[in-house]
Design a binder for these strands. Structure first.
Lengths: 338, 338
DNA sequence: GCCCCAATCGTAATCGCTTCCACAGGGGGC
DNA sequence: GCCCCCTGTGGAAGCGATTACGATTGGGGC
């Protein structure tokens, strides 16, 4: 466990620590011979500079914090989350950054978590589960901490964020449901205070309006199977069997689908259901789920990229990136020519 | 962004940094009055000690590293993973530790990732996706880095690990399948080099042996939907319709179930399928999935606890913890009195 | 009044690394 | 031959905390 320090390497090489440091960081101003000699010694002893000491002196940790609000517990139950983290981690690691995960508990706000656990330990923060007028962006801006949002907050004008084109995705999906000729069209939405929900609702409404229709109903709830199940039950009380349903997540679509089946309705015959996300197993649903694909992995990568951009050049323009969504038609919607 | 340091707090309070530090860390040897005065100033200015500086001087980072091998990409597609991380994070945060996530890429081994990215940045490592004779436990032991395994490596005698009782879970499930009177019983297992797979297979075989039966077939593969689907297709080539199938994950069970349906077999009538994990939406499967429940969240917590134990007292006995599994009967297995 | 000890607090070293600044030596321009 | 500059190197001051060690004070026991 007793590892060498730069001092010992310097002694072994008969030079000063300054020179060793220069070699480690690939700086100029080192004679090619000494450089090689030092490199050999470093390699022979398997020396690695101590990350902490390096960070302290550089005032740079190469750590990115991911704060998951306790209200976003559902994130964990969602494949969305894992894929997002994977994307963020992949890009971060590629750029020699690490990801620090931190969940806020009931008792502690994000800002307390930051000051208690994360201050000095991260270069910036990745903010998930953004809601409209999110208090977190306020204190982050005020505190001058670099950050990037996954999702948008229209009330926060010039901040870095990455989002997918929810409006368009919902629009396409709704339009498709209309084309299938369903009498009534419902939306099982996410939590109302999230911009992601609001923009999907906008797309939903736009498609209906263009067709001269109005929404048969909109319900809000978390992005979970349970919520989808409950919402569908609610809807089924006041709907016929010929309806189209757009869910704001594949999980909700899954839950809704189960609710229909329980009542003996065959999904993809009379009623149609469309999900959102295209989680890896959506194609294995019964029936395979028609859904709006989001490039989740890529969103994670982009978010990390945006944050690292902010970290490395704080005065640069914020990155505001909206990635495309795409309707994937499978069998949970009825056949167009049926 | 310009935050106060302990020096400035000391000046404001008219004391030395030593005293401020003593107050911050709740040490003795500080007059009650001065303590209060300093505390007030700290609060007024919202001072938080710089985590890095603190760590450097304490030689303690309060960071736990989680290394996810690139070969375990499937982990991310599994709800198991998110739940595990959630458990680890919850316990870690409660003990004022942070979780650092690091995925190894194709080009870099765990040990390279550690030395390049994590050395000096973490107090210990949480090791996922353990295989039998895992090289990682070797270099970790050699390097003297505290660590804890999620899952077991029977070849590594005295290390901390947390696992669930896979043998017993598989035994119970298999026994249940036998009781249902199925002619043939299959196992869709995980990767063969994992102890988790081997021990489940042991439970599977034990149950069969006790009943005087022998396995109809065992196939190995990753814990994914795709693998379950493929394995079931393989099995269906050489099986009748009256068989029981135990899968090593809910995802595999899900995939297998889809394969059966594609051939018009009704799962839970003739053939029975049992999963493993009891992921949150297993009950919403069609049909609701009979499965072996693992306490995943708790495993995460325990693993963090074991690691922190090793970190804080390296000479303490390793924690070796096996958590119970439980068969949850739903409708993907046929009714006992049918 | 002297000595000793407990309580309280400060000085300075330390953690391991980066980097500013100074300095030595050699070569080229004049 | 003198001066300047450029290259290569080392000394030492940071980064922001913790803490070993020492110093000061005041009070109690004699």
């Amino acid at each position: 466990m007793q590892r060498l320090t730069i001092v010992e390497i310097a002694e072994l090489a008969g030079v000063s620590t300054a020179t060793v440091s220069r070699v480690l960081n690939g700086k100029r101003d080192v004679n090619e011979q000494t450089r090689r000699r030092i490199q050999q010694i470093i390699e022979r002893y398997g020396f690695t500079p101590h990350a902490l000491a390096r960070s302290l002196s550089l005032k740079k940790t190469n750590n990115l914090g991911v704060i998951i609000p306790h209200t976003a517990d559902y994130l964990f139950s969602s494949p969305y989350f894992a894929e997002l983290i994977r994307g963020m981690g992949e890009y971060a690691n590629r750029r020699s950054y690490r990801l620090i995960l931190s969940t806020t508990s009931e008792e502690r706000s994000s800002s307390e978590v930051y000051h208690g656990l994360l201050y000095g330990a991260v270069d910036g923060l990745l903010v998930l589960d953004v809601r409209v007028g999110d208090e977190r962006v306020l204190w982050l801006k005020e505190a001058g901490i670099p950050f990037a949002l996954v999702g948008q907050d229209p009330k926060a004008p010039s901040v870095s964020f990455v989002d997918s084109d929810n409006e368009s995705g919902a629009y396409q999906a709704t339009k498709y449901l209309i084309e299938l000729g369903h009498e009534e069209i419902f939306l099982v939405n996410g939590p109302q205070e999230h911009w992601v929900s609001q923009s999907r609702e906008q797309g939903f409404r736009r498609a209906l309006k263009e067709a001269g229709l109005s929404p048969a109903g909109i319900v809000y709830g978390p992005f979970t199977v349970e919520a989808g199940f409950a919402s569908a039950q609610e809807i089924l009380k006041r709907a016929g069997s010929d309806f189209g349903l757009l869910a704001a997540s594949d999980l909700q679509a899954f839950g809704a689908s189960c609710a229909l089946k329980q009542l003996g309705l065959e999904v993809g015959r009379e009623a149609s259901i469309i999900g959102f996300d295209d989680v890896p197993w959506a194609q294995y649903f019964d029936p395979p789920l028609t859904t709006v694909r989001q490039p989740i992995f890529q969103i994670g990568q982009e978010a990390a990229r945006a944050l690292i951009g902010q970290v490395e050049s704080p005065d640069s323009e914020p990155i505001r990136s909206v990635l495309p969504t795409q309707l994937i038609v499978r069998q949970s919607t009825r056949s167009p020519d049926g």
